[in-house]
């Protein structure tokens, strides 16, 4: 059984009478420990699919299972709890809580999880050091570059020890050097700590580096086997 199992997933948006078929029957498996890139042009349904896997939205048809559990069954509060404990998120922009420092942002998820302050503080510091930002622990997001903010977001995403980290175009707002640096970071976390990543991008430079790529086009997975040796 794969960690993520999406079966026949469709998503239809209805806004003011306009019907959009964002996903039209997607099947996807992600195994624990994998590093998967969800590739596809803008509007192909990447965000929609990540939202469904991330328990932020429910499919119009089909099922999404996380570790064997159907995500359409629990209540909103239970889903919040599931996101808190099992999922890590990195978004495209404005990831960080602006009134909290880098360290507090990393601590935030652990705080919600109920990790005591004396444990989460050193853990946040060591995570920030791991992403190369130990010196910026007390800086607010406003005082950091876009690349630094995204690395704090990655540190925060893994701080809660999730089963999988979902990253929706985390490099979209970064220059190519920062993007490559972020990708290096995620790859090393995958390799050294076994963190499972599923992240979307439409940046071909990143797609070229990926070990496993799933291509989305017009709401469908276009099978194009592209596994690169590590």
């Amino acid at each position: 059984m794969a960690l993520i199992e999406a079966r026949g997933v469709t998503k239809v948006y209805e806004t003011r009478g306009v019907r959009t078929d964002a996903l039209r029957g997607v099947d996807l498996d992600v195994e624990a420990g994998e590093f998967t890139v969800l590739a596809g042009p803008s509007g192909s349904g990447k965000t929609t699919l990540l939202n469904l896997i991330g328990a932020l939205d429910t499919p119009s048809a089909g099922t999404v299972c996380l570790d064997g559990a159907d995500l359409s069954l629990p209540s909103a509060a239970q889903l919040a709890d599931l996101r808190l404990h099992s999922l890590g998120f990195v978004f495209q922009a404005f990831n960080l809580i602006p009134v909290l420092s880098a360290r507090e942002n990393v601590e935030f998820v652990m705080d919600l999880q109920g990790v005591p302050a004396r444990e989460r503080r050193p853990r946040a510091i060591s995570l920030l050091e791991e992403v190369g930002l130990g010196a910026l622990a007390d800086k607010r997001p406003m005082e950091m570059s876009g690349g630094q903010q995204q690395r704090v977001a990655v540190a925060r995403a893994i701080a809660g020890k999730p089963q999988i980290v979902l990253a929706d175009e985390p490099t979209a707002n970064l220059d190519s050097a920062s993007a490559a640096q972020l990708l290096d970071l995620m790859e090393s976390l995958n390799r050294d700590r076994g963190v499972t990543f599923l992240f979307s991008t439409h940046d071909s430079r990143i797609i070229d580096r990926a070990r496993r790529t799933v291509h989305l086009s017009d709401g469908l997975v276009v099978e194009r086997a592209s596994s690169r040796a590590a």
Binding site: G54, L56, A76, A80, L84, F89, I97, V109, L112, R156
Partner: peptide, 16 residues
């Protein structure tokens, strides 16, 4: 609103 979206996505319970 976007910030509340992040808080909710991270799993901050509605009560909090």
């Amino acid at each position: 609103i976007p910030e509340f979206g992040i808080l909710g996505a991270l799993g901050m319970p509605p009560a909090r």
